[in-house]
Nucleic acid binder design. Sequence first.
DNA 1: ATTTGTTTTAGATATAATCTAAAACCTGTG
DNA 2: CACAGGTTTTAGATTATATCTAAAACAAAT
Lengths: 138, 138
Amino acid sequence: MKNSRELLADCGLNCTKERMLVIEYLQRHRTHPTAEGIYEGLCKMNAGVSRATVFNTLKSLSAQKAILTLQIGDGATRYDIYTTRHAHFRCLNCGKIEDIPMKKEDVMQLPFGYEVCQSDYHFTGYCPECSGKGHSLS
Amino acid sequence: MKNSRELLADCGLNCTKERMLVIEYLQRHRTHPTAEGIYEGLCKMNAGVSRATVFNTLKSLSAQKAILTLQIGDGATRYDIYTTRHAHFRCLNCGKIEDIPMKKEDVMQLPFGYEVCQSDYHFTGYCPECSGKGHSLS
DNA sequence: ATTTGTTTTAGATATAATCTAAAACCTGTG
DNA sequence: CACAGGTTTTAGATTATATCTAAAACAAAT
């Protein structure tokens, strides 16, 4: 895994301690956290990073495609530093958002003429741990 | 196409003039509008429907799976009353969100154990009208 | 060390969505 | 049709999410 310094260099972004902290937080927490979640996590570490900086950093990294922004679920935007091809699954019972491996042939072919920059595959339902426990009956 | 009264009956929702207006707006505007967009559209018609009612109605219809909620793009949630299987494409140049037909075999198979309730396929890029005009170079 | 452009910051602002409780409405029943 | 009782609507307040601002701090090249 690329370290935060290399990642920032690859993105053409100046290396600041705040950006490094955000990247390292994402590398340690592969739970698809929200900006607020990252901010709170950093606060607990007494990192002294402001909310605006967390948003700014996520925006810069996202613009460079170094992280994915996920609009899954109802709440805030979530972020994922794992950028290779994969789908996402959100469990309606436990709320967890999981990575789902994708094969090359799972990628849908669009009609001629569309120039695709980004593909998002989102599934919602019950994960193997929560499925079959009657959650879907209610 | 089912009329608004039938649709509400199928959802087990009382038939009110406000709900009918929201449904009919969605049937006439297949542009994946936001709640705010629907509210403004209804205001222009002097429909006298409040913002809260637009949100309430969309939430009820969504809970009954009578409409799709789309978390595509950066802004607000968008709504689609066309609920049969299809993907969505958002153009980075013109902003339009288009329906993309999907074949049964385009639906990705998840690993064993996952109980899928909803699948969302979102693509972002340049639509045939905007592609090849240098927008992706900038 | 100096310079210059970039980044960070706290708080204000903007945007999206939900909550509140009173009034209005829908629908089934008589 | 009139009534009763639960449901829905409403305007405005509130919450949640994200961005803006301009001054201060910082990074990186010299």
